[in-house]
Nucleic acid binder design. Structure first.
Lengths: 327, 327
DNA sequence: CGATTCCATGGAATCGATTCCACAAAGACG
DNA sequence: CGTCTTTGTGGAATCGATTCCATGGAATCG
């Protein structure tokens, strides 16, 4: 055609097929450069069955944890030649299901998702046979391999740390119970409290939704208790931010008036005065690991679910308990 | 076929074409439900020329400003029925060009980008005729409409605020000069300083790269000066975070030892003690506006470039200058 | 009741690549 | 020098939808 060769030859040149003459190669390359030709990825992936694209479905890109995760996934996927198609479910089941549909229609080669809800909401996805890996969050019994943080150890260590400092009323701002992380962390808190000298009062738990506003609401609710907690623990970074804002606004000084343990090791948390004690995990390893698992699943291998360790990083927001610190 | 009708009829039913009998409709719908059929988006967009997909190319998703922007763009694009294909250039020209290529190959209907570099790096993109809108950052003379913040006013107000408080040595941690925001903000700083009683010493400017590590390096460099600045100003949120961390580590107290003005109104900045004075702009309006402009451009209308106002939010990190505050 | 319009439908072309197959020219070998 | 292999090439089928066009039957109208 443009270069005096057939489309078949042009295709062979562009895909690096060995059976091409140097003459044809240069002719095609010149024509491509002249016409600014871009192969149509739609047509290609219609013929091949692969799109070289993976989907990444996250609950909230504004949560620094998931932003870091998105970055890690995208960079690692690039290493494998995959383009990342990104969807933001906005912590909404309805948007999550819509995105499952979209990803299926786009014929992504695989999907990495931090899901919420239970198996019922995944029927379409599971029936499709699309290679899938869950990251951070898990749905039991779905037969989908996952890479997730150890939600229990971090919480246990945090509660032990706080009780060791003398705290007996530890308020907990939990995540939504529609997520595995929300459930596991709450359960770990309850178990740790039960096995400790601290109060196991139900009013010390506030159930939020992993967004900043609910962290603020939780802090208000807990601090308004007749016998207010002397320590607060929040189940993600955004709720931590909301809760800290409320403490500041109410003139309650973190560290001296109330101890505080946050979740996820956001850089900004180290800037606070005092710096925040947090439960941290390795986001980068989680993102990279998810891609590597997905590549295995796409290749037909069976992937083992992995749990990555969490650890408690002790900083100034959880000092020795001063006498009379109870509000 | 499965439903006893032709593909033509099935297609008409699924796309809501009026010429379909109720009988055919129910038959097709039942077959679709039974087989779990998903239309192949590749095949569809091969035939139609549209993909109902827009590209979003950002320099760094871990920067909270761009994470918020991504969220705003994605939500607004959804309103128009577009799927957002997201790319992270990692503040790298090479990755940026690679993504331009990918977006072109994917035949996105339009592209929203926060570009860096100059026209040279955009030759391929501009030659393709792909409807494009620049957001936050601009490339002059490319003929691409843009929606960007007013980089000058915020900086001018910040410098006026600081000189009004008595500061004469104002250190500036600038962004990379390969970006319009980096250039305009630095220029605004230099002009504002020149028109003020403050020192216009070149050593008071440190050129960073919009990442936290360079903010830290800049803070070290400026605080090591023989005649160290009494106020610091950083050109984005990540460099602000890096710089604040260094101040804390060096035992330099923000507010009392040094005044600090950050960029972008990150929620975490309000939690600092004292809270950070910042130059803020409306990320949500920028993201939504970009999508609306792009929709116009795709429709063939000519879009007017827009500049959104910035404003200075004064908080505790820039108090009245105490005597003897100069390091 | 015959003629015209309207509607639902199937057949077939189409989008832009990849790839099977056949074929011809060139090189290898006895 | 004749066969046998290798190599480069073009023709044509293919992927899965959409859509033009033709057709037959029903509805409408004078």
């Amino acid at each position: 055609m443009k270069a005096g060769v057939s489309t078949a030859t042009a295709s062979r040149v562009l895909s690096g097929h060995p059976s091409t003459s140097p003459a044809a190669r240069t002719a095609v390359e010149q024509a491509v450069a002249e016409l600014g030709f871009r192969p149509n990825a739609q047509a290609r992936s219609l013929r091949k069955t692969t799109t070289q694209t993976i989907g990444l479905l996250l609950p909230d890109i504004r949560n620094p944890f998931f932003a870091d995760l998105a970055h890690a996934v995208e960079q690692r996927a690039r290493d494998f030649g995959y383009l990342t198609l990104f969807g933001n479910a906005n912590e909404s089941m309805e948007q999550q299901e819509r995105y499952f549909d979209v990803m299926l229609s786009q014929r992504v080669d695989g999907l990495i998702a931090a899901p919420q809800g239970d198996r019922a909401g995944l029927a379409g996805l599971l029936g499709s046979g699309l290679p899938t890996v869950f990251v951070d969050r898990v749905i039991e019994g779905a037969g989908v391999p996952s890479i997730s943080p150890d939600n229990r150890t971090g919480i246990r260590e945090a509660v032990a740390h706080l009780t060791g400092l003398g705290h007996r009323r530890i308020g907990y701002i939990a995540g939504p119970q529609s997520t595995s992380t929300g459930r596991e962390r709450l359960q770990a808190y309850q178990e740790a409290i039960a096995g400790s000298p601290a109060d196991a009062a139900p009013e010390l738990v506030y159930i939020g939704d992993f967004q900043a506003a609910s962290g603020a609401a939780g802090a208000h609710a807990l601090l308004d208790l007749p016998d207010a907690p002397t320590a607060l623990l929040a189940a993600d970074s955004l709720m931590s931010i909301g809760a800290i804002g409320v403490c500041n606004a109410r003139g309650i000084s973190i560290g001296s008036d109330v101890a505080f343990v946050g979740y996820d090791d956001i850089e900004a948390f180290t800037l606070l005065n005092p710096a925040l004690t947090v439960i941290a995990h390795d986001v980068d390893a989680m993102g990279r690991g998810a891609v590597e698992m997905l590549v295995d699943v796409i290749a037909g291998a069976s992937a083992q679910s992995r749990v990555l360790p969490s650890r408690l990083i002790i900083r100034g927001s959880t000092p020795e308990l001063l006498e009379g610190a109870s509000a």
